[in-house]
């Protein structure tokens, strides 16, 4: 018994019972597609939260009465904090100019206003590698306790909302994944049982003429391997095509031009492929166990 002969028998069997084998492949395809679709959304939302939080950084407003000679010391203190990538000092004058540029045609409303009415501030950019929402929160609370600081902002409401949403989405992905695995395991094991039962007589005859368990089981396991690989592979290819289409649409949209999306990580792709193959192969092995008892 050689691998090419097993492959040949497996392919012949696949061809002879194409309908039933297609049914298993379609079930695997749909399950893998739904699961990987939700996972793709989850991964991109995670990326977005991380990106968004880092982009926001921290804005530290100082007391207007803070002496000018304290600024370099505060700058050094902030730059020395763990996770801080860059510190920019915004003087009241610079803040006033920025406000005027935001207002554009409406900047006349600032006429007669004291250019130093805005408080001095620092803008902190956080290192993406060490970024974590809880850590950012702790950092903000620490800085807020400094006597010169009146307020620290880091878009906490947005980030908290996004974080809550991503936790919810993760739960949806995990629960839907679990339900999909259970339902597809049920459907796949039953369609496999149908295939196995349909060939019960063939297996009985093979056993009578002295076929080993490997000879009987081999083609079935190879068929299951191909079904799992084909079903999940097609689902991932389908999802990738959809992803590329959405990416093109986003590139063309002015509103979403800056938003980057990414495809599933390679490890996750591997898990989906391996999981689908494992489901089919183990389902077949279990369904055949009864027939291999001598």
């Amino acid at each position: 018994m050689t691998l090419p002969s097993l492959l040949k028998r497996a392919l012949a069997d696949l061809w002879n019972d194409l309908g039933t084998h297609m049914l298993t492949t379609v079930v695997i395809f749909l399950s893998a597609l739904i699961f990987s679709f939700f996972s793709l959304i989850y991964f991109n939302l995670q990326n977005f939260v991380e990106h968004f939080g880092t982009e926001l950084g921290l804005v530290i407003y100082l007391n207007k009465a803070t002496p000018q000679d304290r600024i370099p010391a505060l700058y050094q203190k902030l730059a020395g904090l763990e996770g801080v990538q860059a510190v920019v000092y915004i003087s009241p004058d610079a803040a006033f100019k920025r406000l005027a540029s935001y207002l554009k045609d409406e900047k006349d409303v600032l006429k007669g206003v004291d250019p130093k009415f805005l408080p001095p501030s620092f803008e902190l950019r956080i290192n993406r590698a060490v970024f974590h929402l809880d850590r950012l929160k702790r950092l903000a609370e620490k800085i807020n306790r400094w006597p010169e600081v009146t307020k620290v902002q880091y878009g906490q409401e947005w980030l908290n909302k996004l974080k809550r949403f991503s936790v919810l989405l993760r739960a949806v992905v995990l629960i839907s994944g679990l339900l999909l695995v259970l339902s597809s395991a049920f459907v796949v094991s039953n369609t496999i049982k149908l295939t196995v039962y349909a060939r019960e007589q063939e297996m009985e005859i093979l056993r009578l003429v002295g076929a080993t368990n490997g000879f009987i089981q081999g083609p079935f396991l190879i068929e299951a391997f191909f079904q799992g690989l084909l079903g999940s592979g097609l689902a991932l290819a389908f999802l990738y095509a959809g992803y590329r289409y959405v990416e093109t649409l986003m590139g063309a949209s002015c509103l979403l031009k800056g938003v980057n999306i990414s495809f599933l990580p390679w490890t996750f792709i591997g898990i989906i492929l391996f999981g689908s193959i494992f489901l089919c192969v183990s389902g077949t092995a279990l369904a055949m166990r009864r027939f291999l008892r001598l």
């Binding site: 056993r207 009578l208 003429v209 002295g210 076929a211 080993t212 368990n213 000879f215 001598l294």
Partner: peptide, 14 residues
């Protein structure tokens, strides 16, 4: 043993 049975059946046809 169960794994030897196929080899017996190559000697004993039914």
């Amino acid at each position: 043993s169960p794994s030897q049975i196929p080899f017996l059946r190559r000697k004993v046809s039914v």
